[in-house]
């Protein structure tokens, strides 16, 4: 019951969408069908968890989409079909993710550039860099071993579902630790948090690093799932932010749970699946995301005064 309360109304929406999908496509109810859905949702759910850390601390990370593209394009070019290169390149991808996250964090906190601008700039820098490096057409190929994580199964369960479980568990554990409390405090009231001994800058920087790490993992899963593409990360940053706000996490920080943010990602993925099942074109996905973001923020603004009085 308590778990249900931390997840909030999003689970109801999710349940309805899943039921609608099952009605249109009975295969969805079979284990293989449901696991396929989880596998497909895994990268977005992991990205949403990363984005949650940043948003709950009061910031944004718009760079994750192009970071995912960078990961896949860099991996293909460096591995170039060579199985032996898989593990060093995987390590490098994680390092790139952490580094970009660190850069976002330091620029935002130490240089006091609003994160909206920092990460928007980073998004442009990264997509420009990818374009320059590839000339618009990615080169090389991913190895079979690299693609295992996004494509293959361990027994009946896809690797990406196992990775999702591990990442989701780690995110929830992290939010229950001291770090999680400091993160929420920093997002709720920066001054109060800092007066009570939270090192706000360091905490927020760590949140960006976690988001970069999530993007690295998502990139590895997406590249594994569908192979090399220069468009792989397109629009993912907005999908991740939409998922987080859909999970009831307040933009501006301080409120919401990581489990709800991940449920938001599942909901968004379920919504896309449903739109697809009913043959509605992809163009509508952007419109739907836009409506969700605006509606969620508007709803949050309406709720805010009530919450204040409740706390007094």
């Amino acid at each position: 019951m308590r778990a249900l309360r931390t997840l909030g109304p999003i689970v109801v929406v999710l349940a309805v969408l899943l039921a609608l999908i099952a009605a249109a496509n009975p295969f969805f109810l079979e284990p293989a069908g449901f696991l396929a859905f989880l596998k497909r949702a895994a990268p977005l759910v992991i990205l949403a968890a990363g984005q949650y850390f940043v948003i709950v601390s009061g910031e944004f990370d718009l760079s994750v989409g192009s970071l995912v593209t960078v990961q896949v394009v860099v991996a293909a070019r460096l591995i170039d079909g060579d199985e032996a290169a898989t593990w060093p390149v995987l390590a490098l991808l994680v390092a790139i993710g952490l580094l970009i996250g660190l850069a976002n964090g330091v620029i935002t906190t130490a240089l006091r550039v609003p994160s909206f601008i920092t990460t928007l700039g980073m998004m442009l820098v990264l997509s420009g860099a990818v374009f320059l490096w590839t000339g618009g057409a990615p080169r090389g190929a991913l190895s079979e071993a690299f693609r295992t994580f996004g494509r293959k199964d361990l027994g009946p369960v896809p690797w990406s579902v196992l990775i999702l479980l591990a990442a989701g568990g780690a995110a929830i554990a992290l939010m229950r630790s001291d770090f999680g409390r400091r993160l929420v405090a920093a997002g709720d009231n920066e001054r109060a948090a800092s007066l009570s001994g939270v090192r706000v800058n360091r905490t927020r920087t760590l949140a960006f690093v976690l988001s970069g790490l999530a993007a690295a993992v998502a990139g590895i899963l997406l590249g594994g799932f569908a192979g090399v593409s220069a468009q792989v990360g397109q629009g993912l940053e907005f999908q991740a932010i939409t998922a987080v706000v859909l999970g009831g996490v307040a933009l501006g920080g301080g409120r919401g749970s990581v489990a709800a943010a991940m449920a938001g990602a599942f909901t968004l993925e379920a919504l896309f699946t449903l739109l697809n099942l009913y043959g509605i074109s992809g163009a509508l996905e952007f419109a739907v995301q836009g409506v969700i973001i605006i509606a969620a923020v508007a709803a949050g603004a309406v709720r805010l005064p009530l919450r204040r009085t409740a706390h007094v």
Binding site: N25, F27, A32, G33, A36, R40, L222, F225, A226, G227, S229, Q231, V232, Q234, T273, N276, L277, G282
Partner: peptide, 14 residues
């Protein structure tokens, strides 16, 4: 989109 293509085809096979 490669990922979306793969998902759609998988759905149809299923």
């Amino acid at each position: 989109d490669a990922a979306k293509t793969k998902s759609i085809v998988s759905d149809y096979i299923a």
